[in-house]
Design a protein around this nucleic acid. Structure first.
Length: 284
DNA sequence: CTTGGGACCTGTGAGC
DNA sequence: TGCTCACAGGTCCCAA
């Protein structure tokens, strides 16, 4: 579910609710998500003030006043509910009582209740010293932020230099660039005119110079649109999650290519067990 | 070292 | 209506 734009949308939604506020009470309703929760997580969160709410790749980072950071990953189906609103996955269930998938509940002092809900439980949470956050096992091997200064055609050229793997797989590798997922890789490759099966090392410098801004543009536009909402029937908040209407190829198999004068038809292929979408007419 | 496949989970929609 | 199957926005871990 959530790739960088969706996680950033969640962060922006939580910001006014959580930043600067104390967690009056934390409830942990099961022992684990993908991994066991850290020792005594509820106690360590209770009473903690959220100093800063940041993001690294697809991870939310809540810096707490006592020097620990709460690391949150939404996995495939993780959502954050604020009061009755859903941030991150824009399905609804507004106002529903705590359900079987409401795993962590945070009651903020003078603020609403924030609930972490994750049906599939591929998500994760951990607590780690803020000063050492870069060494956390989940964060230490991440590549550059695609919207940051460390990401460039030069950086991609170095990472792709001896990679025989398809460019689709290379861009999903979080150690090469952090935050892209299945949707935005397909969308970025479509914008750059690159076939997803092309071996990464075969892509020339000129095309990498097009790929980098294509990645940045698609992420920025998606953030602007509040991310992408798939498989939802309706929205609680009309301002959120409209980027799915701007997909050029993702989930568009059989549809005509939107590129001017192309006339191709979008195809779906499977690469390392995951769907890739592209236009055979204008992606080479 | 690289690469691909399996594993982890639950929910949903299509087809019969 | 109810069943089965394919598939879903991620990524760790391990075998080849």
């Amino acid at each position: 579910m959530p790739e960088l734009p969706e996680v950033e949308t969640v962060r922006r939604g939580l910001l006014p609710v959580m930043e600067g506020r104390r967690i009056a009470r934390a409830q942990v309703r099961r022992p684990d998500l993908r991994w066991p929760f850290p020792e005594r997580m509820a106690e360590r969160l209770t009473g903690a003030r959220v100093e800063r709410l940041g993001r690294r790749s697809k991870y939310l980072l809540l810096d707490l006043k006592h020097g620990e950071t709460l690391i949150v990953h939404l996995g495939m189906s993780g959502r954050m509910l604020v009061g009755g609103e859903v941030l991150g996955e824009f399905h609804h269930d507004v106002g529903a009582a705590p359900g079987p998938h409401d795993h962590v509940v945070l009651d903020l002092e003078g603020g609403p209740r924030v609930t972490f809900n994750d049906a599939r439980r591929f998500g994760a949470m951990d607590l780690w010293p803020t000063e050492d956050i870069g060494n956390h096992r989940l964060l230490r091997a991440l590549g550059p932020e695609p919207l940051g200064n460390g990401f460039s055609a030069e950086a991609l050229a170095r990472a792709f230099a001896r990679k025989a793997a398809p460019v689709k797989a290379a861009l999903l590798d979080q150690g090469i660039v952090a935050g892209l997922g299945n949707i935005y890789v397909s969308e970025a490759l479509a914008r750059a005119g690159i076939h997803p099966a092309r071996p990464a090392r075969e892509i020339g410098r000129d095309r990498l110079e097009r790929l980098v801004p294509a990645i940045r543009a698609v992420l920025e536009e998606a953030i602007e649109a509040g991310g992408s909402s798939l498989r939802d029937h309706r929205q609680a908040n009309g301002e959120l999650g409209y980027f799915q209407h701007s997909f050029r190829v993702y989930d568009q198999a059989g549809q005509p290519c939107r590129t001017e004068g192309c006339g191709g038809t979008i195809e779906r292929i499977v690469q390392s067990g995951r769907s890739s979408y592209y236009c055979p007419g204008c992606q080479t």
